[in-house]
Simulated assay, not measured.
Amino acid sequence: MTPAIIILALVTAQRLAELWLARRNTRRLLARGGREHAAGHYPLIVLLHAAWLAGLWFLARDAPVALPLLALFLVLQGLRLWIIATLGERWTTRIIVLPPGKPLVRSGPFRFMAHPNYAVVAAEIAVLPLVFGLGWYALVFSLLNAAVLAIRIRAENAALRSVA
């Protein structure tokens, strides 16, 4: 087993665990009166992330690993966990807005920016391919992700304004 396969297996396991957590949190939020917004673009997000990871499995399984970039990717994972921990049961991969009167999370990384998760995801989509020397792959998926995030952030901001 190559180092690249170990890294990809760990990232895949992490993403699957996060999907489980997101589904659990989504069910809980909806049960508390939350409402999903802009669900139409969600399959596009899933497709983009699945294609990104599947492509890495295909292209990078025997690639050498750039340790400084791997260290950067690990820092990004720490930031990802900070975001998930800060949001707690509110963290999900969908746009779920609670009824009016529930304050937005303003602690943790949300003190510094409105959408820290999207910044981390954008960095991950670029950095992990670079760990394996796939600069062109990082560029292509970064551009695709930027297009999807433009849709997503507009939709999320509109959903949040609808209950403000």
Rank of each mutant, 00 (worst) to 15 (best):
Y42R: 13
L16V: 13
N157S: 15
A147I: 04
L29M: 13
S107W: 01
I95W: 04
Q14H: 14
S142M: 03
L74H: 02
G34L: 08
L16W: 11
A146I: 00
A85Q: 14
L79W: 13
A13F: 10
V140T: 11
I6G: 10
T86K: 13
V97C: 09
V65D: 06
P99Y: 02
A150F: 11
L87Q: 12
V97R: 05
W91Q: 02
G135M: 10
W52F: 01
R32A: 09
L72R: 09
Q14W: 11
R35I: 09
R28W: 11
M113V: 15
L79M: 13
Y42I: 14
R80H: 06
T26S: 06
F73I: 07
P43V: 12
I5P: 00
I153Y: 08
K102M: 00
L19C: 03
A17I: 00
L56R: 08
V120C: 06
F73D: 05
L134Q: 07
P116I: 10
L44I: 07
E18K: 04
H37W: 14
E89A: 06
T93W: 10
G101I: 03
A164P: 00
P99A: 00
A71N: 02
A146Y: 04
P99K: 01
L76R: 12
N25V: 06
L29T: 05
P109H: 12
H49Y: 12
S162Y: 12
F132W: 02
V131L: 08
G108Q: 06
R35V: 12
V75I: 14
P68M: 05
A158S: 14
A31W: 10
A22E: 06
R23V: 01
Y42C: 03
A38P: 02
A31G: 05
G135W: 08
I83W: 12
L16Q: 12
T86F: 12
A158R: 15
E36S: 08
T12L: 08
P64D: 14
H115Q: 13
H49N: 15
T93H: 15
W20T: 09
R94F: 06
V163S: 10
R90C: 01
L79H: 08
T92W: 05
L70S: 03
L87S: 04
A54D: 00
L143K: 03
L47N: 03
L29G: 07
L74W: 11
V127M: 09
N157M: 11
P129T: 02
W20A: 12
V75T: 14
I153K: 07
V131K: 03
A9H: 10
T92S: 15
R24Y: 07
I151P: 00
W82K: 05
A147Q: 01
V131A: 06
I45C: 01
G40T: 04
F110L: 14
V75S: 05
M113T: 14
A51Q: 11
E124A: 08
A50D: 14
A114G: 01
S162A: 15
A60P: 10
Y118A: 09
S142Y: 01
P3K: 15
A22S: 15
A51K: 03
M1P: 07
T12V: 00
M113K: 03
L8P: 03
L47V: 12
P99G: 00
